[in-house]
């Protein structure tokens, strides 16, 4: 039995060290309490709804979210807007549909089943409007960056005066968390930039946290279901393991040997 514990702990240790060494490039990101971390982590509903507001009023003018549909906003485990609210949100956007019976394309209000409307026709148009830089799609952005949520959260608050001696071209900004410290996105947030529907004070910090929470959900819409199922699965496995352990002891007691 001692051996199995040794073996078990070696495996766990090994897993963690490989995981650690894989997440290279350590930077001290700004920290905040994320409600969705940990064994029982869940999204903060209010934060998700505010985060959606930040996204749609600030980010969405340049950043697409092409893998999300309006219906997702009302689904369980997400911002959970009511059905009426979700429909109203969808209807506030216009999508091109068609062709109709006359062979013409036409505009209509978006429905729940429509994907989020893209800010630009295509990548080239997006680059042309942003000084050659393509504002990345935000659907899985959190998972596509090494630092994850901490990186996005820090980046949004990382705008500073460039250190003396660092020359910045037009349309390039200094950000202390950006790889290479140069970013083509101007500081997107400023205190009081938007007015939250629920009366929360819209500081840069608050908005950064809310929109990052929203992006985390966008990248992992089933995170809550995953945490809940994971807890059940692991408890189940542990109980089963204990039962099998005692069965094994019983069976092996017939032969003179130590298991």
């Amino acid at each position: 039995m001692k051996n199995i514990f040794k073996l078990f702990s070696i495996i766990v240790l090994f897993c963690f060290t490989t995981a650690q060494s894989n997440s290279a490039e350590k930077v001290d990101y700004l920290k905040t309490d994320w409600s969705f971390k940990g064994l029982f982590g869940k999204f903060d509903r209010g934060s998700l709804q505010r985060g959606y507001q930040v996204y749609t009023e600030v980010c969405a003018s340049c950043h697409s979210m092409k893998y999300l549909s309006y219906r997702n906003l009302g689904e369980k485990g997400g911002p959970e807007f009511s059905e009426a609210e979700t429909k109203a949100i969808a209807a506030s956007f216009e999508v091109t549909d068609g062709p109709n019976a006359d062979g013409e394309m036409f505009l209509r209000p978006a429905k729940l089943s429509d994907k989020f409307v893209m800010p630009y026709e295509n990548v080239k148009a997006a680059q042309a409007a942003n000084g050659g830089a393509y504002p990345p799609d935000m659907s899985v952005l959190v998972k596509a960056r090494g630092g994850g949520v901490d990186y996005i959260y820090s980046l949004l608050q990382g705008y500073e005066e460039a250190p003396s001696g660092m020359a910045l071209d037009d349309g390039v900004y200094y950000n202390k968390y950006m790889y290479g410290n140069k970013i083509k996105m101007a500081a997107p947030l400023s205190d009081g930039l938007i007015e939250y529907g629920d009366g929360t004070k819209a500081t840069v910090e608050q908005m950064s946290k809310d929109v990052t929470t929203f992006l985390m959900w966008a990248a992992e819409p089933h995170l809550e279901a995953r945490h809940q199922m994971g807890f059940k699965a692991i408890i189940y496995l542990i109980i089963l393991t204990i039962l099998v352990y005692f069965s094994m002891k019983k069976i092996w007691s017939r032969v003179e040997s130590e298991v």
Binding site: I4, H227, G230, I234, L237, I238, L240
Partner: peptide, 14 residues
């Protein structure tokens, strides 16, 4: 089963 606990930890939590 012990192995599956490690496995499940990765699948569900990281």
């Amino acid at each position: 089963l012990m192995f599956m606990i490690v496995f499940a930890f990765f699948v569900f939590y990281s």
